[in-house]
Design a protein around this nucleic acid. Sequence first.
RNA 1: GCCGAAGUGGUGGAAUGGCAUACACGCCGGUCUCAAAAACCGGUAACCUCACGGUUGUGUGGGUUCGACUCCCACCUUCGGCACCA
Length: 829
Amino acid sequence: MQNEITEDKLFPFDKIEPKWQKFWRDNRLFNVDTANAKDKYYCLMMFPYPSAALHVGHGRNYIIGDAVARYKMMRGYNVLTPMGFDAFGLPAENAAIKSGIHPETSTLNNIRTMKSQFNRWGVEYDWDREVVSCLPDYYKWTQWIFLKLYEKGLAYKKKAFVNWCPSCKTVLANEQVVDNACERCSSEVMQKDLEQWFFKITAYAPRLLKDIDKLTEWPERVKTMQRNWIGISRGVEIDFKIDGSDEKLACFTTRVDTIYGATFMAIAPEHPMAQRLIKGAKDELRILKEIQKMRDVSKIERSDANVEKEGAFTGRYVINPVNGNKIPIYVANYILMEYGSGAIMAVPAHDQRDFDFAKKYKLPITLVIDDPKNPLNVADMKEAYVEEGVMVNSGEFNGISSSVAMEKVADYFEAKKFGRRSTQYKLRDWLISRQRYWGAPIPIIYCDKCGTVAVPEKDLPVRLPHDVEFRPTGESPLKFAKDFVSAKCPKCGGAATRETDTMDTFVDSSWYYLRYITPKTSDRPFDTATVDKWLPVDQYIGGVEHAILHLLYSRFVTKFLHDIGCVGFDEPFKNLFTQGMITKNGVKMSKSKGNTVSPDDLINEYGADTVRLYTLFIGPPEKDAEWSDKGVEGAFRFLGRVWRLVESVRKSGVVPVTSENLSKEEISLKRKMHLTIKKVTGDLEGGFHFNTVISSIMELVNESYDLMGKNINAIGSAVMHESVETIITLLAPFVPHISEEMWQMIGKKNSIFRSPWPEFDKDAIVEDIITIPVQINGKLRTKVEVPLDIKDEALKEMVLADPKVKTWIGAGAIKKFIIVPKKLVNIVI
RNA sequence: GCCGAAGUGGUGGAAUGGCAUACACGCCGGUCUCAAAAACCGGUAACCUCACGGUUGUGUGGGUUCGACUCCCACCUUCGGCACCA
């Protein structure tokens, strides 16, 4: 690959890189004293699951983070950039079932491998703060958070239909089900009626939604996803009196304006009143069977919009409060028990689902909102009219627009006490139980006498036993660990048993960013004062795949900790950056697709700086990008070019300090240099535009070469020395090893990361003579060179005297003469 | 269906009301060399023209403006999220 002749043209990355990696570590460049540091900057990357080997696609996240951290360091901040491992979870356990290697062993091995990969990338962290979620000194505090939630009634156990992955043999949170399939293994998810632990995240739904507005520095798409997931609906909850009973049936509607058009009621098959309503009906048994049939279909299957609507008449009626009409009550498969009150008023004329149902069961359809443009006729309607319109058949509300009626009817309902305004959310409580081994045990004890008892804080952690048969059976493997299960009741001291489910790993990852601040505290999860000093996180960087799960759960846990006085802020992440993924052959890089590119091979061939530079140059970092091996070579060539430039300038000898009497070319290079500083700094401050940052540094390198080509004596000039120094400094955050080395080559003693970022000089950017494009009727025709401070009149005269302009104008009359100062001239003829 | 993001050379992309295609990849040519590689220099949107130069051109169709990749309206396509949520 590298023959003798080319050898000396390259830069010796294989020597440079280990040298500086050691230097940074020996000099503790990335270690921060969180208690005393001023001008803090908390740069956080989502901590990874420890997997066997990282590919260049994974690398993007860490390289971006490292570049940000190093840049902020050069801007004078005390940058905290910690790293840890989200170390509990299914893959290690599944691998263990296959290979027989204990999850702890494989996890800790993988962590070691990953750390050495970070090291080779030149990605540095404050390793004194490493957090590993599967170690007892960490999960002790995960359990502590559970206990605090339990204390406040926000962790509770209930029997519920839950998502069950038959392959992973565990339950899943709603957030972990994607297209009816397990997020992890893609098996089709089933429903099971199980008793499980939940966190009451729904209690925080209004705040989680409202505070999204505070997250001004989050990507819009992430905020939208969270809004959709929380899913707010405003409407009215109506109490319908059941005919022949004192009982009421509550239902939620967002379209109270259509109340006069309600022609039937529909309740979910699971509705608690269903059994009672049908009691005594003459074909009670048949109805019961039909309801049972609906319940037997899995909820997920049932919630598919394409499933045929099914229903059964209960034989009972409710009274419509506005007009006293008797409305039949149906049990229907399209009603979800979890949303609203599990019952709806059906308005077939103005809701497509109700329309379909009414057509099938031949129920009446009453039009109450008419289309002002094309008046409707029920007999001709092929689908529900769901738009706004004019109220008809609606008593005193006739004639007004439906949007106005929406409020008036709601007011009327509240005045008459028929119902009340209400807000509903789609968000469901967070199911945290898992019937698996490799997770944090839920700190609960069951006593025959005292019932469910929380493990006292002093007894934490509830240790995960090491030797357990963890083959998945559908029941928690811990159930079969006798020593683990048997416990003393903390209340009465009697024999009791432990909860054997473990916690969802998203609980572990919902608070790790707090632990980094004071990672060694052993009497509490973190020190509040220090955490309040460092958080919210200044910059969070990670993949968009966590837009809902991790980011929503972390926001919830932070708000909870805020409410119990453990932290002073209620949003954990001020700035969020979600990087795009790296594709190869058009698809996401992954081991299963067989299209991964190994960083190790590339680092051996080109060095880490080349891989880093290419990764940052590949495109806008928030967008997906296609990996190109040719592009890597281009990055490598560029670094070689910079290296040779620095070498030539260094060899040229002592720098003349004066920058007076500069040649025209030198002035031009100096201007370019200051423009580059301006552009690079602006592009970094205004977002992470690494691709344009690098291209503008390339331009400066090209111009420096141009000057050398034009004037060999320029190599030794002050301007050239300055330019080279600037190039090295601007490149440092991206290609740290070669930058440190070149920095030393030009005689600097300090680490470049303890040297200041360059400032641009306004005066050096100003040009005396500027080129002004001249347009005629908006089309570029020529350019004129004029002094910067030329007066409009003089400019006009000069432009009109230009022979090209004269030709173009010809005999035409000038209608307008537009001058954009220092930018452009446009003549309209 | 609803919400969000995007659409620019052969390729990745740059320019957010003022010179479209910076920078890089690829390709073509030159210098050096016995030769090659590397390096350095130059060219590279399409069409017309020997050339000078001109015309067209940022998904499509309209509009605003002296001037539009950029703003407005309508649409098409791709990607991502949500979806029987009353």
